[in-house]
């Protein structure tokens, strides 16, 4: 592990100043992702600024009827919060579907959406990876792609040597629920405060796969706000994985269904960011939700999906899988609604 300086400043403003002043500085929250990367040499900061005790750990009511999740609230606390469980079950379910009890007790609201990809090559410093080492190439193309993207990529088998190639997925469960909930991210940066719609927090690789989000260096998440939902809104999170617990999603679906309103769908582990299925949402606007209509809408959503070939057969199975999972999730939500 590369030696680094560790700082625990007095408040968030100082923390932001510290990180902004040092190009190779990072924030530390629960550390469940960052510390692994320090050990593996994936993250090699010179300065680690601990913000765990600086941001709020509270879940508090907002005047508009929504909820504010302080950045230091733990995944366990948020999942257990009565208001979250009653009003935003999709979020509680997503959190409980992630990692393990021990990890959730430590992982935070600010850190979870900022965890890095689980691409195995990203975690292995002996292999080329554009995200870890810009310009080095992408080892995943044609390699182990089971957990990789089918949406938001340019092509099946993009050029592995091109500096912009990255077919990684964002692995967070929580983030998929937050995308479906249209959450808002409260940020404090060197230039002051700003609010970022959660659906715009994460990026596609574009021409710089090293950047997961639109956050600028030194920008700190202080809280995530959940907007109020109409009474009677139903929501659910469905995670499909290789083992029953303690595994990242192959695909996941967060769905929010307001009474008489239009369904919102977010997909996980299919793209470089949590994927709002806007095309499917559009096609389902005002439509009756049946297996048939949902499947057709998802077919349209997935029309441009690119299966990535690779070891063990690649990840083409994700395309029918995510479609079937959306159908099953909405079927359960609507039958719950009519029950």
């Amino acid at each position: 592990m590369k030696p680094f300086a560790y700082a625990r400043p007095a408040d968030v403003a100082e923390a932001v100043r510290d990180v902004a002043a040092e190009p190779n500085a990072v924030f530390l929250a629960g550390g469940t992702n960052l510390v692994d990367h320090l050990k593996l040499g994936v993250a090699r900061p010179d300065l680690v600024v601990d913000v765990r005790t600086l941001t709020s750990a509270d879940v508090s009511d907002l005047p508009d009827g929504g909820l504010r999740l302080g950045a230091a609230s733990t995944n366990s606390e948020v999942a257990a919060d009565r208001r979250v469980r009653e009003r935003y079950p999709v979020l509680a379910q997503a959190l409980l579907a992630g990692a393990t009890g021990q990890l959730r007790n430590t992982a935070t609201t600010g850190g979870n959406p900022l965890q890095r990809t689980r691409c195995v090559y990203f975690a292995d410093v002996t292999t080329p990876c554009n995200k870890r080492e810009p310009g080095s190439g992408c080892s995943a193309v044609g390699g182990y792609t089971r957990y990789h993207a089918v949406l938001g990529t340019t092509a099946a088998l993009p050029d592995p040597t091109a500096p912009e190639t990255c077919i990684a997925t964002h692995p967070s469960d929580m983030a998929v629920a937050l995308a479906a909930l249209d959450a808002q991210v409260q940020v404090l940066g060197p230039a002051g405060e700003r609010t970022i719609p959660f659906t715009e927090l994460h990026r596609l690789p574009g021409d710089d796969p090293s950047r997961d989000t639109v956050l600028e260096h030194g920008e700190l998440i202080t809280a995530i706000d959940l907007p109020p939902l109409p009474a009677g809104t139903r929501s659910a999170y469905r995670k499909v994985r290789d083992r029953a617990s303690y595994a990242y999603a192959l695909v996941s679906v967060a769905a929010v269904l307001p009474p008489g309103g239009d369904v919102r769908i977010a997909l996980g582990s299919v793209a470089h960011r949590p994927w709002r299925a806007t095309r499917a949402e559009e096609l389902l606007r005002g439509a009756e939700l049946t297996d048939h209509s949902v499947r057709a809408a998802m077919d349209a959503e997935l029309a441009g999906a690119q299966p990535q070939p690779g070891l063990g057969g690649g990840n083409g199975f994700k395309i029918p899988l995510v479609n079937r999972t959306v159908v099953a999730t909405l079927r359960a939500l609507t039958s719950e609604a009519s029950a």
Binding site: V120, Y121, D124, T127, R243, S245, Y246
Partner: peptide, 20 residues
Amino acid sequence: RIGQVANHDLADYHITVNAD
């Protein structure tokens, strides 16, 4: 292509857990 196990840690090499 490179001669190694791609998923060489316990997050990626899945062993049956209690819930299974």
